[in-house]
Each structure stands twice: as structure tokens, then as C-alpha cells.
């Protein structure tokens, strides 16, 4: 992806996370915990499981729709990060050709089943991760981490990272644009130019860090980044957690999907 697409992409994601929907208003801690449980449940299925994974798509679909997140945007982002899982997974059908099932006269090899399983798990885990940040502002996630016991120091600098991400991406974009304007053909993208660009960006970053530190001092900073607790776990958060856990447990341990298929 080019710099601009990445930049607009992350900006769009960020803006989605500040929407006001039911999902967005849930306490970040509830969403973080639910996401982790969801991920664990999904990857705990054995290698050849595909059928039992189907019901789990309900979770991302509900977050997508209730959270009013554009489906296509999320799918596009999933495809962008898919190469590694696909690349590793595609060896399964090549290497594992034993016939595992005959579905309506078409024989399916074990390798294809395990590959399909990887793809389904990929779709589920990646969409859950993307939807967490699309429905929870990054500062919200950070505060959740802090209150779930992550070190204050780590969380503070993570918040700084987020705050200056956009500022520095813009700065980098300006530097890159300047390179593009001044370079003709390939000369502008060689190692030397590249290193200089990063070097300049680094120096500017250091100067900025210094100015930020001064601004902090001028407002009484003396080592701690204070913050007011804002979110309180409400009934709806507990309900959300309870329903999620029940849903995960039921579909993890009971062969409901296959049952539906038998009845049908």
C-alpha cells in the first residue's frame, strides 16, 4: 500500500471509533475482554473444524451492523493483511491430500478442510480485532488496559504514540512529497535518499519531543500523567459480557450447527 492509502485508512478507522452507537458506548473493558474471549474460543477449535465455526460470524456481524461500521471497509482491510496466513495455509491442501469427506459427490481432502479452517479463523479473528478498534476509541482501549493492570508507564507512552501518530504521519508525508517532487525517475528512492528522509524525520521528531516536554512542564508535569477515571461498568456492559460468554460457551461446546443440518 502507498503512504497515502495507509494514512487515510488509519484516519478513517480512527474516526469510526468515535461514533456514538450502542456498541461504541459500551465500556472499553467489556469490549476488550469480550474480544479476547472470542479470539480464544475461535482458535481453540481443532485444525479440521469448519462447521462449528459458522455461528461465530454472528459476533462480527452484530458489531458491524449495530456499530454502523462499513462492511466493505473492514473486508478490504482483512484482505490486505491476509497474505501471510494464506501463504502458509495454502501448503495444507498441497501436502495433505487424503480424502476426508465426500460432500454431495465431491471429495474433499483433509488439506482443503484445514486450509478452509485457517481461512475461517483468519476472517473471524481479524474482523474481531478490527471491530474492537472501530467501535472503541484508542484512548478508550488504553484506559481499559490501564485498569486491567498494564503498567502506567507503558500505557502513558502508548497514548503519546497515538496522539502523535497522525502528526508525524503528516510530517512524513510532507517529507515524502518533497522527495517525489524533487526526484525524477528512480534516483529519489535509493537507499541514500531513504536514509536521509528517515534521518530528517527523526531529527524533527526529537525537536518535537523536546517542545512537548516543555509544554508539559509548563502545566505542572512532574513525572506522572494524571487521568480521571471516567467509565463505570454499567448494567449494559455486564449484560453484553454475559451474553457474549454464554454465546461463546454454547457454540463452542454444543454441536448445534450440525444438529441444524441434520434436522433440515
Amino acid at each position: 500500500m502507498t503512504f497515502d492509502t495507509l494514512y487515510f485508512d488509519i484516519g478513517r478507522m480512527d474516526r469510526l471509533s468515535y461514533r456514538e452507537t450502542f456498541v461504541h458506548r459500551l465500556d472499553p473493558r467489556a469490549k476488550v475482554i469480550a474480544t479476547i474471549l472470542f479470539l480464544f474460543t475461535v482458535i481453540s477449535f481443532p485444525k479440521y473444524e469448519i462447521v462449528a465455526l459458522a455461528p461465530f460470524f454472528l459476533y462480527p456481524v452484530l458489531l458491524l451492523t449495530v456499530g454502523e461500521i462499513p462492511v466493505r471497509f473492514i473486508i478490504k482491510k482483512m484482505i490486505v493483511v491476509s497474505p501471510f496466513a494464506v501463504f502458509i495455509g495454502i501448503f495444507n491442501p498441497i501436502l495433505d491430500t487424503r480424502t476426508a469427506a465426500v460432500i454431495f459427490g465431491v471429495s474433499l481432502s483433509a488439506g482443503w478442510i484445514s486450509f478452509l479452517s485457517i481461512l475461517l479463523k483468519f476472517a473471524l479473528t481479524i474482523s474481531a480485532a478490527l471491530l474492537l478498534i472501530a467501535t472503541t476509541s484508542f484512548p478508550g482501549v488504553c484506559h481499559a488496559l490501564r485498569r486491567l493492570g498494564f503498567p502506567a508507564l507503558f500505557v502513558s507512552q502508548l497514548l503519546f504514540l497515538y496522539r502523535y501518530l497522525f502528526v508525524l504521519m503528516e510530517e512524513a508525508m510532507r517529507i515524502v512529497r518533497a522527495r517525489e517532487m524533487r526526484s525524477f525517475g528512480s534516483r529519489g528512492t535509493g537507499m541514500k535518499v531513504f536514509v536521509r528522509l528517515i534521518g530528517i524525520l527523526f531529527l524533527r521528531t526529537m525537536d518535537r519531543a523536546e517542545r512537548i516536554y516543555y509544554a508539559m512542564l509548563s502545566r505542572g508535569f512532574h513525572g506522572d500523567i494524571p487521568s480521571l477515571k471516567r467509565s463505570r461498568i454499567a448494567f449494559r456492559d455486564l449484560a453484553f459480557m454475559a451474553i457474549t460468554i454464554a454465546f461463546l460457551a454454547v457454540f463452542r461446546f454444543l454441536p448445534i450447527t450440525e444438529g441444524i443440518g441434520r434436522v433440515a
Binding site: F138, L159, F160, Y162, R163, V167, I212, M216
Partner: peptide, 10 residues
């Protein structure tokens, strides 16, 4: 530069 002054996430 207000970007240097506004260093907190919200």
C-alpha cells in the same frame, strides 16, 4: 504550534 501543546489524547 498547538500540536506540541495539546499532547493528551482527548
Amino acid at each position: 504550534n498547538p500540536d506540541d501543546q495539546l499532547f493528551m489524547p482527548t
